[in-house]
Amino acid sequence: MTIALDQPAVPAANGHAGIRRWLWAIAFLVFVMVVVGGATRLTGSGLSITEWRPVTGAIPPLSDAAWALEFEKYRLSPQYQLLNTGMELADFKFIYWWEWGHRQLGRFIGLLYLAGFFVVLLRRSMPWRETAILFGMGLLLGLQGTIGWIMVASGLQPGMVAVAPVKLTLHLTFAGFFFASVIAFATWLTPLRRIEPAWGRGAAWFLLFLLFVQIALGGLVAGSKAGFTFNTWPLMDGALVPPASTLFAGTPFWENFVDNVALVQFNHRIGAYILLAFALWHMLSLRRAAPGSGGAKRATAIAGLVLAQSALGIVTLLLVVPLWAGLAHQALGFTVLAMGVVHVTRLSAGTQLA
C-alpha cells in the first residue's frame, strides 16, 4: 500500500475568520428556522397568514381593526371553514404569531446572507470561483423561500386543511440542501489541524445521501401526519411488514408513496433501519482501516447520533408525536445532517490512499 499525500485545497485561515463566523451564524439560524418551522407545523399555524407579502408582510397587525382584517382573511380559508370553525380571535393570534415569527426569521436569514455576500463581493475577499459558489447558495436560499410560499398556497386550495405533503417535503429538503451547503463551505474554510487518510470517502458520501433520503421521507411523514397512526413498534398493525392491501390501498399506485399513511410511515421506518445499519458499518470499517483518525472519530459520533435519533423517533411515535418530541426529532435529524456534511468535507480535503 502506498500513501499519496494530497494537500487539501483549503484556503489559509488568514482573512477568512470573519467569513467563517458569518457562515456558521447562518447555519445556526437555519437550524433554528427548521425547529421553528416544525413548531409552526405541529401547532397547525402554517396557514394562518394567507398572503405572501415579502416586504409589507413583515409588519404585524398593530390595531384591533388590523387584527380583525387578518382574522377575516383566515376565516375565508378552507382550514378555518373545515377544521377551525368557531375559533376565537385569541386562538387565531396564537397561530398567527408562530407563522409570523417563522417568516420573520426567514427574512432575517435572507438579509444577513445578502449583507455578508455583498461584503465578500465588494472587498474581493475570495477568488471569483468561491464568490460564485456563495452567489449560487444565495439563489438556493431564495428558491427555498419561494418553495415555502408555494407550499403554503397548496394548503389554501379548496378542500385543503393542511399543506400538500410533497410540497412540505420539498420545503424541508431544500432547507437541508442550503443548510448543508453553508456547513460545507464553513468547514472547507476551516484549516485542517492535521492531515488524515481519506479512507471511506465514497461511503461517507453515500451516508450523506441516505441522510437526505431519510429527511425527505420524514417530510412525507410530517406532511401526511403519518406519525399519528400505527403508534406501535416494532410492529405496524401487528406485523413487521403490513399486508400489501394496507400499504397499497390507494389509487393510483404512486399516490400511496405520498398520501397513504401506512406506506409513508413504513418507508420512513425502513429508511431508518438502513441508515442505522450503514452508519454502524461505516464506523466499524473506518475504525479498522484508520484507527484513531479524525474520520474514524467522526464516523463513531455519527453512528451514535443516528442511534439516538432512531431511539427518539420510536419514542416520538409511541407517544403520538407530542410537540417536544417532534421538535427534538427534527432538530437531532439536522444535527446528524450537519455532522455528515462535516465528515464528507473533511474526508474530501484529506489525503488519498492508493
Rank of each mutant, 00 (worst) to 15 (best):
G295A: 15
W199R: 15
G227I: 03
R107Y: 06
I147D: 12
G223K: 10
S77Y: 02
Q79F: 03
R103A: 10
W98G: 06
A308P: 03
I147Y: 12
P11S: 08
L286K: 10
G271W: 11
W22T: 01
N260E: 13
R269Y: 05
A303Q: 05
L332T: 11
F28Q: 02
R20F: 07
A180D: 06
L168V: 07
W128K: 14
H268M: 07
G116Q: 08
L189D: 02
Y273G: 04
L305E: 10
I215E: 06
A153W: 10
L192Q: 13
V120L: 05
T173R: 02
P243T: 14
G333S: 11
V120P: 00
L82M: 14
S293K: 08
R129D: 09
I3C: 08
I133S: 08
L134H: 04
L263F: 12
L323E: 02
G57P: 11
A198D: 14
F117M: 04
E196P: 02
Q157T: 01
I95S: 11
P234M: 08
A58M: 15
I59S: 00
L112F: 14
P54I: 10
S48V: 00
A162Q: 14
P60L: 02
A184S: 04
Q330H: 08
P243Y: 14
L327G: 02
R346C: 04
V166N: 09
F248S: 06
R123P: 06
T187V: 11
I95P: 05
A162C: 00
L347V: 06
Q104H: 09
L189K: 06
M151E: 06
F228A: 05
E70P: 01
G219K: 11
F209C: 13
P78I: 10
K225G: 08
L263V: 07
L42D: 00
V264A: 09
G159P: 13
G218S: 01
Q214E: 01
N84H: 12
W199I: 14
G106Y: 02
T40I: 06
L284G: 03
W100I: 11
N267G: 00
I302T: 03
A249W: 06
I314W: 02
F135A: 15
L353C: 02
L83K: 11
M137V: 15
L210D: 05
N260T: 12
L317R: 02
A13Y: 13
F31A: 13
M137Q: 13
H268A: 00
M1W: 07
G159Q: 10
G46V: 06
Q157M: 13
P242T: 07
L263K: 03
P243H: 14
V34D: 05
Q81P: 04
L122S: 07
V321I: 15
P243S: 15
S125Q: 15
G38F: 07
A180K: 01
E88I: 08
A244G: 06
A216H: 01
A115Q: 04
Y113T: 13
L114N: 08
F108L: 15
R124V: 12
A65F: 00
P78M: 07
E72H: 14
V241S: 11
I95T: 05
G340P: 03
I109Y: 10
A25V: 13
F179I: 08
M283P: 02
A198I: 03
T131I: 15
I133D: 04
M126T: 15
G148H: 07
L121I: 07
N231D: 00
L172T: 03
